[in-house]
Write a protein that binds this DNA or RNA. Structure first.
Ligand SMILES: [Mn+2]
Ligand SMILES: [Mn+2]
Ligand SMILES: [Zn+2]
Ligand SMILES: [Zn+2]
Lengths: 141, 141
DNA sequence: ATGCAAATGCAAGGCGTTTGCAAGTAAGTT
DNA sequence: AACTTACTTGCAAACGCCTTGCATTTGCAT
């Protein structure tokens, strides 16, 4: 197959073969505004790009996650979502009024991390923070 | 069955029948230091208290959650953990080594909340913070 | 072009959780 | 205490998301 796009170099650099499926998945992830599930990827690929097996989607995503190309988040509905890793430390504000998502780069974890190390000998390697509230347009009356 | 403990009143107040299993589950949750899985509860009940079916454990926990007696947290290993709701503001440490979950009452959100209000006029109503890392026993060498 | 390791499709299985149904039980009524 | 009824439970089957074993196909180094 020779529809390989510009992702070929990234794949090579990470020691992966450049295949149609992998390029298509990276493209879809890049085009997606929000994190998406494996099945959403699978359906979108099937409809727009090329037949693919769901297990291939999972295997590909797993590899991308292990290479730190993709971030996997387990949500409360039991489905994992995947997004490209842009190597920024960011968090999201979810407006419970209009469902808008706002990205912020603020992070309040710094001091807590040290205090956890001292108090209970827990070495923090990462964290997940989601903030809920009302955006400017949806402020309570 | 008449091993009903002091939880009878709580159950009544919430409109639930007081049964052996429900009392036992509440007791176990109260005795547990950290949030535990349904299966851990199930095994502990089977060994120490009384035979019970795993589906009964799940059904009971679901009801407790719906009555706000219990807090359910979905973790990255795909298993939900349950703990008594003490109506405190708390967060969870998830050990990526042994998958133990530790509850903490520290919260670093205070200042960020005010700064978000000032900077982008966002009114925070809630947040979810999960912290990943290595517990005392799993520290890297 | 050839050869081999890596990637894929397919079907089956794993695992945590849920559900339908029949039997059992709590607790109010008589 | 016996009756009544709705709630609770055990059991087995099924669910949904995800993983895995194996035969086949493919990328890519030589
Ligand atoms: Mn952060
Ligand atoms: Mn908090
Ligand atoms: Zn809004
Ligand atoms: Zn640990």
């Amino acid at each position: 197959m020779e529809e390989n796009t510009n992702y070929t170099e990234i794949l090579k650099r990470e020691g992966m073969k450049s295949t149609k499926h992998r390029n298509a998945i990276l493209l879809l992830l890049e085009q997606s505004e929000d994190p998406i599930t494996a099945e959403e990827l699978y359906i979108s690929l099937k409809e727009n790009t090329a037949l693919i097996n769901l297990s291939t989607v999972y295997r590909t995503l797993d590899i991308f996650v292990s290479k730190n190309l993709v971030i996997k988040s387990t949500m409360d509905d039991g489905k994992a979502r995947y997004e490209l890793n842009h190597h920024e430390h960011k968090h999201h504000l979810f407006c419970v009024g209009c469902h808008k998502v706002i990205s912020i780069e603020d992070c309040p974890m710094g001091e807590l991390q040290e205090s956890l190390k001292k108090k209970i000998d827990f070495d923090v390697t990462g964290h997940k923070l989601e903030i809920y509230g009302y955006c400017h347009n949806c402020k309570k009356v």
